[in-house]
């Protein structure tokens, strides 16, 4: 464990909690892409099946359980409890255009052609593009609630911190995982224009509104 990975995990946890609290407190999922949340639930489910087969640490297991629990709770709030506030018209990204190519790539490019490894690879690739429906929805509505931008900032920051973690592990533990690193770079790059807007607008107290 290193400081980048720990702060990365905490940033990820913060994002998940911020979103869950936003929906729960405001009793509304306006501006939130349910499709992205479903993709994240799939990402966690396919990546954390090893919860059943291997134990790494209390930290590892508890974080995985929290991530999976919150992901499904968020999907439940969006599609069941507060579905009246779900903005389906603007959440129109065709996720099959993500899941199918990612699934194919996971079968073709992986470290080991085994069931768990292919699922893990699928989850890594899927996570790198899972935020696209959410970013697409914001570009369609032209704006985002400030709390949603904080959620996105923490979510984008987590994988950027993981990139630093992988540099650290390469240097100190001569370890690197090309699949995770390439997917992590793609994932972080997708947030760049959002990061720019967040830093130039939200941090200056303005509302995040895209040029319509």
């Amino acid at each position: 464990m290193n400081v980048f990975r720990l702060t990365g995990d905490l940033s990820h946890l913060a994002a998940i909690i911020i979103l869950l609290l936003k929906i729960w407190k405001s009793r509304s999922c306006a501006g939130i892409s349910g499709k992205s949340q479903i993709l994240f639930a799939i990402v966690f489910t396919t990546r954390y099946l090893d919860l059943l087969t291997s134990f790494i640490s209390i930290y590892n297991t508890s974080m995985k359980v929290i991530y999976i629990g919150c992901a499904y709770a968020t999907v439940y709030l969006i599609y069941m409890k507060f579905r009246a506030t779900y903005d389906g018209n603007h959440d129109s990204f065709r996720v099959e255009f993500l899941v199918v190519p990612v699934g194919g790539l996971a079968v073709l490019v992986n470290h080991d052609f085994s069931f768990l490894e292919i699922l893990w690879t699928f989850s890594i690739y899927l996570e790198s593009v899972a935020i696209l429906p959410q970013l697409f929805m914001i570009s369609k509505t032209g704006e985002a609630e400030t709390i949603t931008t904080h959620y996105l900032f923490c979510l984008g920051l987590y994988r950027a911190l993981y990139l630093l973690n992988w540099i650290w592990r390469f240097y100190f533990e001569s370890f690197f995982d090309m699949i995770a690193i390439v997917a992590g770079v793609v994932q972080t790059v997708l947030y760049c224009d959002f990061f720019y807007l967040y830093i130039t607008k939200v941090l200056k107290g303005k509302k995040l509104s895209l040029p319509a």
Partner: peptide, 10 residues
């Protein structure tokens, strides 16, 4: 990176 080693991350 072989299976198992990398999987200590979330």
């Amino acid at each position: 990176a072989k299976l198992g080693y990398f999987k200590d991350e979330l």
